[in-house]
Simulated scan of single mutants.
Amino acid sequence: MTRKPATRHATITDVADAAGVSIKTVSRVFNDEPNVRPLTRDRVVKAALDLDYHPNVAARSLAGRRSFLIGLAYENPSPNYVVDLQTGALERLKGERYRLLVLPFADVGAASGKMQAIARASGLDGIVLAPPLCDDAATVAELEACGLPYARIAPTTDGSHAPDVAMDDRAATQAVIDHLVGLGHRRIGIVRGDPSHASATARLEGYRAGLKAHGLTADPVLEAQGAYTFASGYAAGKALLALADRPTAIFASNDDMAAGVLNAAYEAGVSVPGALSVVGFDDSNIASVVWPRLTTVHQPIREMAHDATGALLALIEHQEAPPHQTMPFQLVVRGSTGPARA
């Protein structure tokens, strides 16, 4: 069997020859160094594109004492949420010289007050903090003190000078309650999120405020604890549906838990949306693949990660970054909600 010869990759020497310049000039172009004439820079870039040349990021890092690495730190048990986070960050880095290092943590305590050491060990140029680390006071204080560039996704607390991209979780949850009350529901339950996440508190507050706005009293019996996982949503759904006076609607604080509630309703023989309406939060992929498809709050997670990563790049490159961006939410009504039963 004849082995196909390996394809030879273009080198910096090839680019220099094609552009009619020195290797040092090519290096200066790709390291964004000054004092390179625009026409020369354009000629080098065109030669690189024609040859499909890609500079060695590791070598450039050593030469410039920079890693060109940014971290994405998060602790979230929902795989759907995490995929959107990573996709948004990677989309922003496309075509940039920076690469993404994913830093997942089992719990906030594993990273709290240790982010500087983690960043130094990884050689990071900056870091994006996703929930719940974006609200961890020790982590924020540490990064403020050490001066490492960072940005936050969906924070609900102040005390930071870093740029952030957020959404109003309270208002979004109140919109959910408005929708359910408009369908005639008066006994509305909630599956609360992981208590270590500030978003869980914000959504609980929005739930209670929404009930109050319609003259309804929050009933602690209808507030089941979850953990942002399918299994916790399933367990909470079973508990709520086992009540003698069970709810006619359940709001789950994320889509994974809402899918768990749907499963619990199916096992209990409770039709959705005939006898029970179910609403989630995030509008992640799972909301569109379960049946009935979930009514949910569209949280632009991918866009938030994209813009937070862009703000971090601006900080690293000593450019101006918007201090705060608020993304709009949207209530997406699908087949899991309907009029309250008589």
Results as ranks from 00 to 15, higher is better:
residue 169 D to I: 01
residue 111 A to I: 02
residue 311 A to K: 06
residue 105 F to E: 13
residue 215 G to R: 05
residue 295 T to W: 07
residue 245 D to S: 05
residue 9 H to I: 05
residue 292 P to K: 12
residue 278 V to D: 07
residue 298 H to D: 09
residue 321 A to V: 03
residue 32 D to S: 03
residue 9 H to K: 14
residue 222 L to E: 02
residue 168 D to P: 11
residue 66 R to A: 09
residue 113 G to I: 04
residue 161 H to D: 12
residue 188 I to E: 04
residue 113 G to M: 03
residue 40 T to H: 06
residue 323 P to F: 09
residue 247 P to E: 10
residue 290 V to D: 08
residue 294 L to T: 13
residue 330 Q to Y: 01
residue 237 G to P: 03
residue 285 N to W: 00
residue 200 A to K: 08
residue 322 P to M: 02
residue 271 S to H: 15
residue 240 L to K: 08
residue 162 A to K: 14
residue 283 D to C: 02
residue 269 G to T: 06
residue 290 V to E: 11
residue 304 M to V: 01
residue 268 A to R: 15
residue 129 L to R: 13
residue 167 M to A: 07
residue 332 V to Q: 15
residue 60 R to L: 13
residue 151 A to Q: 08
residue 94 K to H: 12
residue 260 G to I: 04
residue 196 S to A: 09
residue 11 T to D: 00
residue 267 E to N: 14
residue 314 A to Y: 10
residue 36 V to H: 06
residue 7 T to K: 10
residue 175 A to L: 00
residue 326 T to K: 09
residue 237 G to S: 02
residue 18 A to Q: 12
residue 206 G to A: 08
residue 121 A to F: 05
residue 260 G to V: 02
residue 166 A to L: 14
residue 63 A to V: 15
residue 189 G to N: 08
residue 209 A to F: 09
residue 306 H to W: 02
residue 170 R to L: 14
residue 284 S to M: 00
residue 54 H to N: 07
residue 180 L to W: 04
residue 43 R to C: 00
residue 8 R to Y: 01
residue 259 A to G: 09
residue 318 H to F: 07
residue 314 A to S: 14
residue 151 A to P: 05
residue 339 P to Q: 01
residue 92 R to A: 01
residue 36 V to Q: 06
residue 51 L to K: 07
residue 76 N to S: 14
residue 9 H to A: 11
residue 33 E to D: 13
residue 3 R to T: 13
residue 321 A to R: 09
residue 61 S to T: 15
residue 198 A to Y: 04
residue 269 G to A: 04
residue 95 G to Y: 02
residue 248 T to P: 10
residue 90 L to Q: 14
residue 73 A to K: 08
residue 243 L to N: 02
residue 305 A to H: 03
residue 141 A to G: 03
residue 253 S to R: 01
residue 38 P to K: 02
residue 28 R to Q: 07
residue 297 V to M: 09
residue 321 A to S: 12
residue 17 D to H: 06
residue 111 A to G: 01
residue 152 R to K: 15
residue 77 P to D: 13
residue 62 L to M: 15
residue 135 D to N: 13
residue 331 L to Y: 03
residue 71 G to L: 02
residue 3 R to E: 14
residue 275 A to V: 08
residue 137 A to V: 06
residue 30 F to W: 07
residue 232 S to G: 05
residue 53 Y to G: 06
residue 186 R to V: 04
residue 83 V to Q: 13
residue 330 Q to N: 06
residue 22 S to G: 09
residue 251 F to P: 00
residue 205 E to K: 12
residue 288 S to E: 11
residue 53 Y to D: 06
residue 249 A to R: 03
residue 235 A to N: 10
residue 224 A to P: 04
residue 239 A to W: 11
residue 172 A to W: 12
residue 151 A to M: 05
residue 28 R to K: 12
residue 332 V to N: 11
residue 45 V to K: 01
residue 113 G to F: 03
residue 178 D to E: 10
residue 107 D to E: 15
residue 280 G to W: 05
residue 198 A to P: 04
residue 303 E to W: 00
residue 126 G to W: 06
residue 228 Y to N: 15
residue 327 M to T: 00
residue 169 D to N: 13
residue 50 D to N: 04
residue 165 V to S: 10
residue 285 N to D: 09
residue 174 Q to D: 03
residue 103 L to V: 04
residue 81 Y to T: 15
residue 72 L to M: 00
residue 101 L to R: 05
residue 128 V to L: 01
residue 245 D to C: 01
residue 181 V to P: 12
residue 204 L to W: 14
residue 77 P to F: 14
